[in-house]
Design a protein around this nucleic acid. Structure first.
Lengths: 151, 151
DNA sequence: TTGTATTTAATGTTGTTACATTAAATGTAA
DNA sequence: TTACATTTAATGTAACAACATTAAATACAA
């Protein structure tokens, strides 16, 4: 369905550039909504899930809170409080970094890894179900266009 | 810059499909951040701005709160409270819908239209500055790929 | 070493969002 | 009409985000 139909736009967009901006935000929200719905039964927000993924990417090495912030999709202020939540759920461990006592090392626990594994099955299923809509070449092309947009 | 560099991704994405999902959310956040920064001096949030645009699109006809909700880019629960804020700033008027007393008609004021006009100049300037990054054909292609992704 | 700037994480505050609930108006079927 | 379901907006709430500030540790230059 075209973006105009989706948002019940009555007047046409001024330019294809404006159309693509609106379409991007709409599509991004659509993806985030889908993923949030999948994560909800597991008691994780999208952001908490992203933090866990970052930690798994470095496992078994620790990641500093500042590094987590840098790598989050939305550069946000609060990796600290997100890690708090994950510590409460015993999905990560927080320890003082030995080489720099300002910094805090965060590591994903076995429990965290196990949860991610269960969730990945569901998210992958959704990914697969979407996959047929674009060919692999089109997915590559789309990513390249996005990269150039931000360049 | 490629999405991998932007988010300091160390391990490659599993598939081009996964890459495009991450890239989409990242790019959408990038656009929203830019627009939010432009709107801030005018005391509007991105959502409030979007509501005003929807109202301008129908001006001088009123739009019901439920219609606003339907047309918002992120289908959110709170058009009601957003309209509250805009009423306080005298940018919109809220009146009971004569034909259905459950519904509430919202209309943008002259003051609202004037503010939008001032803001549009700035946002258009940003749009223009970004425009050279994609040709018009590429913008059309990008929108089409996004539409198909959601199809 | 000392003083100053910088980095890092945590916290305080304010506003926003997500979700559930409420209350009023309307639609509908018996 | 009456009873019941549905629609609509508003509100209560808890969690979250944005932004500024704080406090501690470190870097660095004089």
């Amino acid at each position: 369905m075209s973006i105009e139909t989706d948002i019940k736009q009555t007047t046409p967009f001024k330019t294809p550039y404006h159309r693509v901006m609106v379409n991007l935000i709409y599509t991004s929200n659509w993806i985030a909504d889908n993923q949030t719905r999948i994560l909800k039964p597991f008691g994780l927000t999208l952001q908490q899930y992203n933090v866990l993924r970052i930690l798994r990417g470095q496992h078994p090495n620790p990641v500093k809170v500042s590094d987590i912030t840098e790598r989050m999709l939305d550069k946000m202020s609060n990796a600290s409080r997100l890690v708090d939540k994950l510590v409460l759920k015993r999905l990560v461990l927080r320890t003082e970094c030995p080489s720099d006592r300002r910094a805090v090392d965060v590591v994903i626990t076995e429990q965290g890894l196990a949860l991610l594994k269960r969730i990945d099955a569901h998210l992958t299923e959704w990914d697969e179900s979407q996959r047929c809509k674009l060919t692999e070449d089109e997915a590559v092309l789309l990513s390249d266009l996005l990269d150039r947009m931000r360049s």
